[in-house]
Structure formats: structure tokens, C-alpha cells
Amino acid sequence: MASPAAAVIRIEHLYKEYATDAGPVPVLKDVSVNVMPGEFVAVMGPSGSGKSTFMNILGCLDIATGGRYVLGGRDVGTLNKDELARLRNQVIGFVFQGFNLLPRASLEDNVALPLIYRGTPRSERLARAREMLAKVGLDAYHRSRPNQISGGQQQRVAIARALVTQPTLILADEPTGNLDTATSSEIMALFTELNQRDGITIILVTHEPDIAAYAQRLVRLADGRIIYDGLVEHAAPEHTEATS
């Protein structure tokens, strides 16, 4: 592996606790991992093992309670709220299990939304949005609303929205969790293309071994710790088995 300095993501001894009424609950315990540019990483683990917590921290939506997270050479722990918003806007594209599109806005407006926050002029915004919709095969639907298309199509719109800012990193938390097998394959084919043709780094959470098989590298979490980190094909069968 290349030197850690070149890593997109460098995580050292990361801890995350949630403060609850019953006291602090430790969720991530001493997680360390590096992700190199162009890698395609699948994150697996039983429910409650801390996958979403981990992804939210990677996506700068939440902050760790301990340890260091360096994203693209910048120590995230030292950044203020506006700088974090800027990272989310310029470096990261997030894809959620529940799509998270704005129900009232048209598909092209949904896809163009991140560009509003970097001050791109309207005509250019819409042109880029149409380009991304074309890339995910939904150009014909640009004036439709999210509730007028299928779940698989909605997820493709969400991917288009994540891509419109030309991010170096895509984080996807169970992107196929709400989709049937055929639609899941389509979505995964899209991710694979983005990774292989455009060189975008992808980190993807899943419960399904079939989905994880699209990745090169597997990180397996259990109870807030990494219990496997290596190539998918080298993983022992118990590390790739389906979880729920």
C-alpha cells in the first residue's frame, strides 16, 4: 500500500460516544483505517455495530469524540461548522438508504441543489444537473417530482446529486437497502463505473455479500471495532456473511 500521506481518509484511534439519559454510550472504539484514492470499500457488520455512526463521521455530518480524522490532508477536528459544510459540498457526495430527495422540487432542481450553495449561476446549475441526470439515465424525467418515479430511479437521482459537485469521495450508507435485487445490481453497476472510469473513491455500507462483492476491500465492524480489513476475496466466509 502507498504511504499514509497520500490517503484520502486517514483515521487514527477514532472514538465516538453518544450522550444518552443513561450516560455515555460508546459506539466506536479505537477505529483506525486509511483509504487511498480510487479505492472501493465495503463496510459490513451486524446491526448496531456502528456503521452508520462511522459513515456520518466520515461524511462530516457528525463529529468524533476522540481520535483524529484527516480528510484530503485537512484535520477535520480543527474545522469550524462552515468549513465542514464546505467539505460536504466540495469533497464528499453522500448517498442515503432513504434517498433523501426534496419532495417538492423537480428532479433537476434536486440534483442542482448542492450547486446553489457554491454560488453557481442558475443556467450552469441546470445544465450540470441535466448532464448528471443523463449519466444516471434519467434525463427524460428532469421535470418530474421524486414521488413520480420508482425507488431505484430515486436512488439514481440521489447519486446524480452526489456527483454534480464532482466529489473525490462518495459515501453510501446502505444505498440498496430499500431496493430489490435487480435494481440493486443496476445501482452497483453505476457505482462500479464511477469508481473504475472516473476514479472516485467509494465507501459503501451493506448487509449483503453480493453487494460487498462489487468492492475490492472489505472493512468489517463488530461492536464498534474493526475485526477485518482486507481484500474482499481474502475474507473468511464469516466476515462476508449476510448480516441484518
Binding site: L61, A85, N89, N100, Y117, R118
Partner: peptide, 8 residues
């Protein structure tokens, strides 16, 4: 959602 995609 807006914050996740970069709204300050």
C-alpha cells in the same frame, strides 16, 4: 438534507 449537501 440541505446541510448534508453543503448548506452553511
Amino acid at each position: 438534507i440541505r446541510m448534508a449537501i453543503g448548506a452553511r
